[in-house]
Design a protein around this nucleic acid. Structure first.
Lengths: 127, 127
DNA sequence: CAGGATCCTAAACGATACTG
DNA sequence: CAGTATCGTTTAGGATCCTG
């Protein structure tokens, strides 16, 4: 793991930075959930759809394709009938997934705190 | 700080999980950039708008309000004319921002790898 | 300067139906 | 089963004008 003594960021704030698209794929509404789910285990399409509550077929397919194109998700299709397709994380995908997982973890772990903050504010502005 | 030895997640996959909304605010297109920017320093509205390339007034205001409601961003208005408003991170905001920053860092640091993966795939599917 | 109000377009999203 | 195709709805997002 590289240790940079200095933060060398600035590209991200540029309109044309390619990182932005990747960031969008990874942090999209369903992208986050798919990555976290696949971190636990390999899933078939339908199982993943059941796992990730609320996702439509279309969005799941779309999300998986984007993540696959970025090299984060590996799609393995077994030539049988009926079709059997498995989705898993690539080594690179596992790395991002850990980052995303860490963020999701923080939020879930601090949800109570966040909610209190929220209530405190609405109470203050609505006496 | 609580130390849970086990991963206690699953709520996140539920359609009604409140974490999802917070996650959306934090990982939204502009939310990420705002958090990372404010991690470096405090910004005024217009300066932040210049810093975050491509954001419109409306979206910046909207993003800041969402992050403020979640208790991540502190809005400080000085009663002078013309108006002077500063945005900074709350202690809690600093914590999430570090998570987000870590993710953004990973992506920027691995962008070359990701792009190569992408090119390798499009070359493979288009001979 | 910091936004709110308004209007409008493009994109995201979801439900359903259909196919290999 | 694992999608694709189509359609209608909703939301995100941007441009512009306006005000304290």
């Amino acid at each position: 793991m590289a240790m940079s003594p200095k933060k060398r960021r600035g590209e991200l704030f540029s309109v044309a930075c390619p990182s932005r698209q990747v960031l969008q794929n990874v942090t999209s509404r369903w992208g986050v959930l798919v990555l976290v789910a696949l971190l636990e285990e390999t899933y078939r399409f339908s199982d993943l759809r059941r796992k990730v509550g609320g996702v439509s077929e279309k969005m799941l397919a779309q999300t998986l394709q984007a993540l696959e194109a970025d090299g984060f998700v590996l799609r393995t299709a077994y030539p049988v009938v009926p079709p059997h397709v498995e989705y898993s994380l690539t080594p690179m995908g596992t790395e991002v997934a850990h980052e995303v997982d860490s963020l999701a973890d923080w939020i879930e772990g601090n949800l109570y705190r966040i909610m209190q903050q929220r209530n405190a504010r609405s109470a203050a502005s609505a006496p």
